[in-house]
Design a protein around this nucleic acid. Structure first.
Lengths: 211, 211
DNA sequence: CCGACAATACCGCATTTGTATGATTTTCAG
DNA sequence: CTGAAAATCATACAAATGCGGTATTGTCGG
């Protein structure tokens, strides 16, 4: 017989934690090794006793699940982390992936789907809900229009935006370019209109091509 | 009766194209509307007659499948593109996603898997092979070695900085985090002290690791 | 238990910034 | 040459921001 997949669960709500544990432990080929109520507990224990897969709730009291993964992943590189959440259309997906999670599923997934996901994760996959997967795939897409958005800017406007990107104030930019602060502000205003933004940070983000 | 999913196939090898067409057209709920031997042909025709899903081979004579998607996607935003390839561990995955593809499967996938993938793609998912999905998820992972100056920030401060980085004002952040604007400003002030900066843009630059 | 620290919140002030309106000069392509 | 676009500058106002001080509450490690 093949070795079972060892699982740990981090979930603050008693009822959910229990039922997850029972589900996993009851299924063939899985064993629920550890359960935790808080990220802090998990952090402490999982470093010493690594498991194959960790089911991690995101919304935990104290340290949240994402932060927990961020700290745990470097210390247990072989452990795979699956985020469990109730929200599916959140920015947190990307934060979770950045932190080192490899799977992201919804709590309302049916039990057999959950077990399938654990298996898939353990076998080298990255199970995600449909909408999440689509979101992730879409995040790579670069529309050809977006990259050229800066083309509408004049040379002078780019010079100014470049300095704004370094954190300079309009007065500083004015001094650097030997023009009046008023002029710089006018340019900034024009830049905002062209880029359709309303603040420095937004403008700089577009300029440096981040979202 | 529900409308069938309309499919187009772009594949230069006669035998494969034929068998794919027969598979799709023969299955319930699918209809193979068009087939093409080259990217150029597809480009010409698909703009006028959009379909729901396009199965796109990557390795085509002349223009490759990825370039074809790049040009087709902006003109048929509602069409979903599924790349079909024989290699699974290629850098081309990311290029395909950037170009606008939403699915990436292997040619050696069993027929029923292919049909499943088409359905999933059409219903808002992003079907990928396990290894591909893992590769994509992993590409987001940032190891904590890169950033260390941010360690002095508390969790709350990071949350706030994260939103500042998206261009939100202190009022917006306050609303998002359900606290008073005054509190947010205080946090921002503390962040500035810790990071040794004096403006939002500078703080965001440090946060995102720009120089 | 206590001290350090995080998070919360308020008041206030000077400056910067975002927005608007208007005008003059330079530059450059048709 | 000529008109459009770019660059320049000014004034004005409301809002946002940066900076300072102060205070309460809660948590956590020692």
């Amino acid at each position: 017989m093949k070795t079972s997949i060892s699982v740990a669960i981090v979930e603050d709500k008693e009822a959910i934690r229990q039922s997850l544990a029972i589900l996993v432990d009851g299924a063939d080929g899985f064993v629920c090794r550890l359960t935790f109520e808080t990220a802090e507990d998990a952090l402490d224990q999982l470093t010493r006793e690594p498991v194959d897969v960790v089911l991690m709730d995101i919304d935990l009291p104290g340290m949240n699940g994402i932060e927990c993964v961020r700290q745990l992943k470097p210390r247990c590189p072989q452990t795979q982390f699956m985020m469990c959440t109730v929200y599916d259309e959140d920015e947190t997906v990307f934060d979770a992936l950045k932190a080192g999670a490899t799977a992201y599923i919804l709590k309302r997934s049916p039990p057999h789907k959950l077990l399938e996901a654990i298996t898939e994760l353990h076998e080298g996959g990255a199970p995600m809900s449909s909408t999440i997967a689509r979101k992730i795939a879409g995040s790579f897409h670069v529309s050809p229009s977006a990259s050229n958005e800066l083309d509408v800017l004049t040379t002078r406007e780019r010079e100014i935006l470049d300095r704004l990107a370094k954190g300079h104030s309009h007065k500083e930019v004015a001094t650097e370019l030997f023009v009046s602060p008023t002029t710089v502000r006018k340019h900034i205003f024009n830049i905002y209109e062209k880029l359709q933004v309303h603040s420095r940070v937004e403008a700089v983000n577009k300029y440096l091509g981040r979202k």
